[in-house]
Design a binder for these strands. Structure first.
Lengths: 202, 202
DNA sequence: TGCTTGGTTGAATGTTCAATCAACTCTGCT
DNA sequence: AGCAGAGTTGATTGAACATTCAACCAAGCA
């Protein structure tokens, strides 16, 4: 096993554990035992626990396209469908984990109250990439939306609804809370589409 | 100082600290030193740290009317205005804390990944009370909304948007993210009100 | 006066944690 | 073969943590 393998296995294991248990509840020993790496090796690659978190957040940031968007958008062409396909991906994660796993970035964002600027910037970058991807969908469908629609704000709003919906589904351990929230969002988007079509905003 | 005072000071201090630093990052020593209570006294009233959390969550649950709704709804009569007045209260908290303090329940909900059933039920009860209060506003304004509007789902949606908007404002340390999200929500609610007025749904 | 009960004190306990480090091995280069 | 440096090992350290407990106090009552 070479160096890149070790570093990678640490990051992958930490990614899993931070998602499962959160950052604060994951001990360095947890990472070591699950990844089968010894403490000296971990501290050879990372100055400290927080630097492992930075590495994980960089993986998320750099992998959003391949790891998140591509799998959910496979075979989906319509940009509005893409928005809801991504949300459906989060629904699947909730289902297969009995509503215990949410959005890893959202959990970290609320868990770490006084984040290091480096960590905070990375969490913000992850949010920005996510909502920008959604905003891009709305941009592509701009001709079907009321003129002057703020697609960037709409992207941020979809992120907001996803995070809030996941939070409730997880707290109640009930997917119904997620579904009802997405249904309301869908009603809103539908309203925008039909308002543009009927020309109410023209 | 009598017993009720001591117990109360512990709970009030813990409430502050859990809001400031979160549950996991608040040590029992933190609570003891800020509340000027000795460890033996705390453990006389509470079997352990988690029971302090339970006490805090009960305070939130039982105090939502007096502590949260009443102050924000003073002088506000219109039920739709009440919805946005409550959201404005959260905005004020963000402003006065430089976007560092969010919703205490939301933070706890995402921070504690494997909550004790007692804790989870209390967090859920807090969410239910909050969204029910908003649903009540929509119920009162039902005649101005499209017929068949699901006011309960709308209450959950407003909670969702508040939590997501607070999460982003806190992560970016920028109130603009909160404001834009609330603006989109307002656009949606406005659409519902005007759709009902124009009779598009009738 | 002495007993009981509810509350207080704070040093002590045992555990868990992140981080360290000196000794070691493996790999590639000369 | 001999060397250098990257990577590994795991016992160890010291701090922080939640919790305990025996001694103590004060109020009310017999």
């Amino acid at each position: 096993m070479n160096a890149a393998d070790t570093r990678n296995r640490i990051l992958m294991t930490a990614m899993e554990l931070f998602w499962e248990k959160g950052y604060l509840s994951t001990s360095v020993s947890d990472i070591l035992s699950r990844s089968q790496v010894h403490s000296g090796s971990l501290y050879h690659f990372f100055p400290g626990k927080q630097d492992v978190l930075v590495g994980v957040l960089e993986l998320y940031r750099d992998g959003i396209g391949e790891m998140l968007l591509a799998p959910n958008w496979e075979g989906v062409d319509d940009p509005i469908d893409k928005v809801f396909a991504l949300l459906a991906g989060y629904r699947t994660h909730l289902i297969v984990t009995d509503c215990t796993y949410g959005c890893p970035i959202g959990s970290l964002a609320l868990e770490i109250h006084e984040p290091d600027p480096v960590v905070r910037d990375l969490m913000a970058a992850n949010f920005t990439n996510w909502s920008a991807a959604i905003a891009g969908c709305f941009d592509t469908a701009a001709d079907r939306l009321p003129p002057g629609t703020d697609c960037k704000a709409l992207g941020e709003f979809v992120l907001t609804v996803m995070e809030g919906a996941v939070m409730q589904a997880r707290t109640y351990r009930d997917i119904g809370y997620f579904d009802r929230n997405i249904a309301v969002l869908r009603d809103y988007i539908t309203t925008l589409l039909s308002a543009a079509k009927s020309g109410s905003y023209a």
